[in-house]
Design a protein around this nucleic acid. Structure first.
Lengths: 113, 113
DNA sequence: TGGACGGTTCGACAATTCTCGAACTATGCC
DNA sequence: GGCATAGTTCGAGAATTGTCGAACCGTCCA
């Protein structure tokens, strides 16, 4: 088969709800993922230097997907993640940008000591 | 005594964390409160037409206070709530505004029937 | 076809959150 | 002082969330 463009279950644009988006972004781990995603563009799940079991990381990506924040596609044997900026900007203008800017400028990203 | 300017426990500006703010705003009930607060300026806790026991409402206000989103002060025998716009704008420019705008334009506010 | 690799899914457990009734505290008024 | 009002605090129970190990599935490569 092709082995491309196979998507995980994700909400359509109309199904995205603001509370769910905020809920997804309210976790330091996920906020860190989104921040990194915003800087890099597309990343595979394993490419985060996070000290976590696969299953925990997968859970966080699932939350991000279900809320409509990120899209995940097969690309070879990896899953590649990207921010759904178009959808989020259309629905909630400025929300994602300002949150990324705020998280990036401070040290509010990951729960550090 | 005076009976004014008595505050509830609230974080100082430096103690406010973005994830906690987003967490506070990720609940439809609280998002509705913030939205109403943004439009009216100051409101007492009981002045929301929400069908909820006092204790539940009080809980939500507590979350909003602890996260640094709202400030609460005694004013006579009422507690008056107001958004901490100055603090939030200084820490996370645009975040509160865009969220309020997004919540206000759509019907994402309260879990309606 | 049989690995190795990247992630997901499942089940379990602990921790947090939401909701509610009941009791309590503080204020203002008589 | 005594009472009504406004809201908090204190349990308790149900639901959701975060974390983890183990098993599973799809893709690539030899």
């Amino acid at each position: 088969m092709a082995g491309k463009n196979i998507e995980q279950e994700q909400p359509s644009r109309e199904e995205i709800r603001l509370p769910m988006v905020l809920q997804a972004l309210s976790d330091p781990v996920r906020l860190g993922i989104v921040l990194k995603l915003a800087g890099t563009g597309e990343i595979a799940c394993g490419s985060f230097g996070l000290e976590m079991p696969k299953s925990s990381l997968s859970h966080h990506f699932k939350v991000l997907r279900n809320s409509g924040v990120v899209a995940t596609q097969r690309e070879g044997k990896e899953w590649v993640n990207s921010l759904r900026r178009d959808d989020l900007d259309a629905l909630f203008p400025g929300v994602l940008d300002s949150i990324i800017a705020a998280a990036g400028s401070g040290r509010e990203t990951t729960a550090q000591g």
